[in-house]
Simulated scan of single mutants.
Amino acid sequence: MLSDGFHDIPKGKVAMVVTDLEMRAPQLRGVPMPDGVSFAPLARDVTLYRDLFARVGRDWLWYGRSLLDDRALGTILHDADVHLFTLRKDGRPEALLELDFRHDGACELAYFGLTSALIGTGSGAYLMDRAIELAFERGIDRFHLHTCTIDSPQALGFYRRAGFTPTRQRIEVADDPRISLGYDPALAPHVPLFRP
């Protein structure tokens, strides 16, 4: 348990407040599909997934899937209880929706995000409606996710507006991917970079 007060974070690390959220019953908003996009399954291809993961999440220092080698990532992507979807614009995947049903009675919104090509178009709200619909079609009792303070500043508010309720907060400390994974040091200017 952390005591009250300030705690130094080692150089080369990032610290974030992680908020866990859940939804116990579907709360659809009836958002129409934006013009010029189509909703589709995402091919279970490691190279395609890595490209989309980077285009959606690198500005927010998404690193979880980048830590996995191709074999480990492929095992997840080909699991029958992991479902992948996207929004296509001009034939190109521009959104990532990953639903993880590997625990009975629950679905984790493992990854959710848009590339810059779709931000501000209403595509996020539309995609969230599809996520909620698809999750609860499986007869789950709990749809859950977590977001953190290095993610988009709009993320927590977006999830709450979609009907998710915060259930817990934690502090996570991890290697800064701008150092450990060679991400561009200019990414995520809202997160200070402290080299060791």
Rank of each mutant, 00 (worst) to 15 (best):
L2I: 03
S3E: 14
F6N: 05
F6G: 00
F6L: 06
G12Y: 07
A15G: 15
M16S: 08
V18K: 03
D20N: 08
R24W: 00
P26D: 07
P26G: 10
L28M: 09
R29K: 15
P32V: 10
M33F: 00
D35M: 06
D35L: 11
G36Q: 13
S38I: 12
A40S: 11
P41Y: 06
V46N: 00
T47E: 13
T47A: 14
R50F: 05
D51H: 12
V56Q: 01
R58E: 12
R65A: 03
S66N: 13
S66M: 08
D69K: 11
D69S: 06
G74S: 04
T75I: 07
L77W: 04
H78S: 14
D79Y: 02
A80R: 14
D81P: 03
L84F: 04
L84A: 06
T86P: 02
L87H: 09
R88M: 13
K89A: 13
K89D: 01
K89N: 06
D90N: 15
R92K: 13
P93K: 05
P93G: 01
A95D: 06
L96V: 05
L97E: 02
L99D: 07
D100V: 02
D100F: 01
D100A: 03
R102M: 05
R102S: 07
H103N: 08
H103Q: 10
G105T: 01
A106G: 10
C107N: 12
C107F: 10
C107K: 07
E108Y: 11
E108T: 09
Y111I: 00
F112M: 02
A117R: 15
L118V: 04
T121W: 00
T121E: 02
G122C: 09
M128Y: 11
I132P: 12
E133P: 03
E133T: 12
E133I: 01
E137V: 08
E137R: 13
D141V: 01
R142W: 09
R142Q: 05
F143G: 05
H144D: 11
H146F: 12
H146Y: 12
T147L: 03
Q154N: 14
Q154Y: 12
Q154D: 14
G157T: 13
P166W: 08
P166A: 14
R170H: 13
I171F: 13
E172P: 00
A174D: 08
A174G: 04
D176I: 01
P177I: 02
P177T: 11
I179F: 05
P185M: 07
P185V: 10
A186E: 15
A188R: 07
V191K: 00
V191E: 02
R195F: 04
P196M: 11
